[in-house]
Simulated scan of single mutants.
Amino acid sequence: MASLRKRNNYYSIVFATRVDGKLIQKAYSLGTRYKKIAEQKRIEYEKLYQAGEINPFDDNWNLQEYEKMQDLEGTSVLSPIMNSLQKQFLKEKTNVTEKTKRTYKYIIRQFMDQVGHTMPVTRITADDIRNFCLRDKLANASKKNYLKHLKAFFNWVVEKEFIESNPCDKINLPKTRDNLVDKIIEEKDLNIIFKKFRDYQLKHKKARAIQSTDQMQLWFKPLITLAFYTGLRRKEIVQLRWEHVHLKEQFLRVTDTKNGQERTVPIFDPLYWRLKAWRKLMGNPKKGLVFPSPKSNSKLEIPMTGDNVSKRFKFYATEEADLKDTINFHGLRHSCATFLLRNGFNVIEVKNMLGHKSLEVTNRYVHLVAKDLLATANKNGLIKDKSA
């Protein structure tokens, strides 16, 4: 039999047996202050003792040395494994959307692919987290996102008292320069991209390299215009439906959002005319995807592939229009934020329109329009010319 004893806030396991009617006890420190961890170890060690795999009454046996050997051999059974903890975590994570839960599942599973699905959680180290989250090939945003989700998972593991501290707490993300300005374009850049797109299409059409409407990519101008003037995320755009586009009233509703909350977005005039022409070209549909894949038909609706949209925009923006290499499709969302601020929308309005989780995210764009703020201040007489 084995029982627990607590002294100076730390638990020990006490083995007891009788020899010739005399009670003999042996106590070993478990090195933990958490009852759940201690109880788990007690159960496992008692099983090992009853199975004859350990003999705690042998003067040559030492629990700490035994655990070290188990760690070296990779055979420890004294800790719940990552795979079972992931399943329990996702089951109890009821305060988030299904999309967020899928993100947790994806990231934790990727981490388990690296350290092992049956890895005991007590053996996870800060180096394991660092090697996974701070890989060179990951973008800074991905590094931050991976660490954030793993930190939440291991906080839960700590709360369940399976480990004493969160290994993620020892990880510091490398400081990086906020390069949003390098990803932003203005309306004049948008017009340059569209001109280069038109020139490219005409050139290849004359050369008979383009032989179908699919190859003409007629969706390009209306879709990119939509991204620039609404700031919708790529997935929100490819999932957008005509039922949610109200051209007459000049607003659209975004229902398939990242945070699960619907939002209403105005349709500015440049976008209005693009969408009206696009709708007419499609036969004035009242329902269905706004940007369906060419593979769609009357019975099967297939959204456009997000990767293809991003690649096409990147091609025309950086290769044909020769704009900065840092420009990408998601930069259109950043561009929309600065466009709105420059045109008098306040930070809260921009936050609500783009569906940001907090004002902190939106405030990243305020310093980008500093020159505009100075110009407004000068116009209103708040800043006067000091050279006179």
Rank of each mutant, 00 (worst) to 15 (best):
S310L: 11
G283Y: 07
P292E: 12
R312A: 08
F313D: 08
M282D: 05
K311P: 02
L281K: 05
N284L: 03
G306N: 10
N308E: 10
S296L: 08
S298T: 12
M282A: 14
A317T: 01
S296R: 07
P294Q: 06
S296Y: 09
E319C: 04
E319A: 11
K287V: 04
S298P: 00
M304S: 09
I302S: 13
N284E: 14
S298Q: 14
G288Q: 13
G306T: 09
S296I: 02
M282H: 09
G288L: 07
V290T: 05
S310A: 15
Y316I: 03
N284W: 04
L300M: 13
L281M: 05
K314M: 04
Y316G: 03
P303N: 09
G306Q: 13
M304V: 07
M304H: 12
Y316F: 15
E301A: 15
D307A: 12
Y316N: 03
E301C: 06
F313V: 07
S310Q: 13
F315V: 00
F291Q: 09
N297D: 15
L289H: 09
M304D: 06
K311F: 03
D307I: 06
I302K: 13
A317C: 12
P303Q: 08
G288F: 12
K286I: 07
L289P: 07
P292K: 01
K299V: 02
A317W: 00
K286A: 11
V290E: 07
F313W: 12
L281V: 00
E319R: 07
K286R: 14
P292S: 11
N308S: 15
K295T: 08
K299T: 07
K287D: 15
F315H: 06
L300H: 15
F315A: 02
G288R: 09
A317V: 01
K299Y: 10
L281Y: 10
F291D: 11
K314E: 12
Y316A: 03
D307C: 04
G288D: 14
L289W: 08
K314T: 08
P292F: 01
K311A: 15
N297S: 11
